[in-house]
Amino acid sequence: MLDVDGLTTRYGAIAALRSASLHVGSGEVIGLIGPNGAGKTTLLGSIAGLLSPDAGTVRFDGADITGAAPEKLLRSGLALVPEHRRIFVDLTVEENLRIGGITVKAAERADLLDEMAETFPVLRDKWETPAGYLSGGEAQQLAIARALMSRPRLLMMDEPSLGLAPVLVDLVFELIERLRSEGRTLLVVEQNAHRMLEVADRAYVLRSGEIVAEGTGSELRARDDLFDTFVGGT
């Protein structure tokens, strides 16, 4: 479904991403793990059109979408839940969800709103509240629900458990588990590697802007050299 080949992205002198390649098949849940500063966010941003890559290609269902505008990518079925959630704090919960569904027809949007209210009861309780008043866990659910409003075929999430208390981290992974059971295709950046490896079909390991390993959870866990990537020389 998604094929990334030799993607390189620079910020001035910094090559934040060096020739990264990955593949996401339909219905797969793929993890993207690695330490802070490894280039994970840059990789997602370069796929989603927020950053323009300096080299390499991104193909989605065979079509070349390298460097396309994010609003165009969303219409082709590719949605991103950005890092730090980036919900619209002055807009109400409902308005945030509506914006998420701006690309679908009005009738369908109304159905989707009902669906989200059902799936995320905490949001239904704060339907008319400005999103700035939500707690971290609620805000993360809103960010994910907002992305689901566009009926994406591939959902990318950037650090969904960032800054959440452990009980809420559990909730986020339950949510990923549930989306997976619904048969959705996910590409998830996570620093919480062990949790991610539990829910992912496969994962890619990034370090210093390069993809250094790829495999299933058990394959990756078996490799001691990768353990160092996360924990350091213990």
């Binding site: 452990p166 981290v169 559990d170 919480n192 590697a193 062990h194 949790r195 539990e198 996360f230 924990v231 213990t234």
Partner: peptide
């Protein structure tokens, strides 16, 4: 710090 169990937990996620 390296010997501390809570550190490992924070670092590796609760599963570890």
């Amino acid at each position: 710090v390296q010997a501390n169990a809570r550190v490992k937990q924070a670092y590796l996620g609760s599963a570890a």
